[in-house]
């Protein structure tokens, strides 16, 4: 299991000192600008607009609308009800966030204790590992039809998101609990710590950064699953349902991309919040 850490930007930051954060901001903005410029060019090529004199491709130009059209559709989704579900984007976001929240809470409550147990007990690992390895690679999408029927319309989509978040947290916590430096444990034991103390004072704090990494990765995967979870039977809408409807029922690709943008932004915001919490936690625990 790879542990993801944010070292890449750190190096630049250190080199340039105080100017580092500005530079980072500039580079970030520049990469977005280049992306949007390339996108505009590609769209122009498909549409046969300036600077291209002719329509270059047989595919309908609607497939890649201009960035401005997507931005317009994005704003429009908040100010007008969508043509299929008659809901505003805020309702879709609320519905998706609710699913993410329930899925996350469940995944957290199940994965953290399980991960700690499997990380600290060889027997537990021997029992759990085959099941984890068997179920981990199954795409949540594969479970959709049966979850919808077995777990019903409310819990079915949540269970899909749960699966996406569950495994990253479980594996990271397990890895963290396993990699506690034995020297720390010996030192605690020498100082007269009991098993319970070692667990609460050494293992648990040591695992928290790993857990936070698992949470950040898990939230990202959870958002990836939301379209699959909400494609069908989504009660009260959802951003995933919005994307599905725009793509399959309406072929309104500008709106479909707007829905994707919403997912991207939601993921940035939620993983950002987790990152912020991580920073706070590690500062509070005296690790930074």
């Amino acid at each position: 299991m790879q542990i993801l850490r944010d070292d890449s930007i750190g190096i630049l930051g250190r080199v340039t000192g105080l100017l580092g954060s500005w530079r980072r901001l500039f580079l970030g903005a520049a990469s977005l600008a280049v992306f949007i410029a390339l996108w505009s060019l590609y769209s122009a090529w498909l549409h046969g607009d300036w600077p291209f004199a002719y329509r270059s491709w047989s595919q309908p130009a609607e497939y890649i609308p201009y960035p401005s059209e997507v931005l317009y559709a994005f704003v429009d989704s908040f100010t007008h009800r969508d043509p299929f579900t008659s809901l505003y984007m805020t309702s879709h976001i609320y519905a998706s966030l609710k699913r993410m929240f329930f899925g996350f809470v469940l995944a957290f409550l199940v994965a953290v204790p399980l991960g700690l147990l499997m990380g600290r007990s060889a027997n537990a690992e021997a029992i759990g590992k085959p099941l984890v390895e068997l179920f981990r690679p199954i795409p949540p999408l594969a479970w959709v039809p049966i979850f919808l029927i077995a777990l019903k319309l409310f819990w079915g989509p949540i269970a899909i998101v749960f699966l996406g978040i569950f495994f990253p947290i479980l594996l990271n916590v397990m890895f963290g609990a396993k990699s506690v430096d034995p020297v720390l444990i010996d030192a605690a034991r020498t100082l007269g710590a009991k098993r319970r103390d070692i667990f609460t004072k050494v293992v648990l704090p040591f695992t928290i950064p790993y857990m936070m990494t698992g949470i950040k990765v898990g939230i990202g995967v959870g958002w990836m699953c939301i379209v699959a979870a909400e494609m069908l039977g989504a009660v009260g809408g959802g951003v995933g349902l919005f994307i599905y409807n725009m793509a399959y029922q309406g072929t309104m690709y500008d709106r479909m991309y707007a829905g994707m943008l919403v997912i991207g932004l939601l993921s940035v915001l939620t993983t950002g919040a987790a990152g912020f919490l991580e920073q706070r936690l590690s500062r509070w625990m005296g690790m930074k």
Binding site: F102, L184, T200, K201, P205, F206, M285, G286
Partner: peptide, 29 residues
């Protein structure tokens, strides 16, 4: 890395608070 007894109780309190918040929000939802 660890700073004594205060650390432990802080973590336990944090987990307890988090658990209460989570259960409360789930119930409310």
């Amino acid at each position: 890395m660890m700073t004594g007894v205060a650390m432990e109780s802080k973590i336990i309190i944090a987990i307890a608070v988090a658990a209460v918040v989570v259960v409360g929000v789930v119930a409310a939802a």
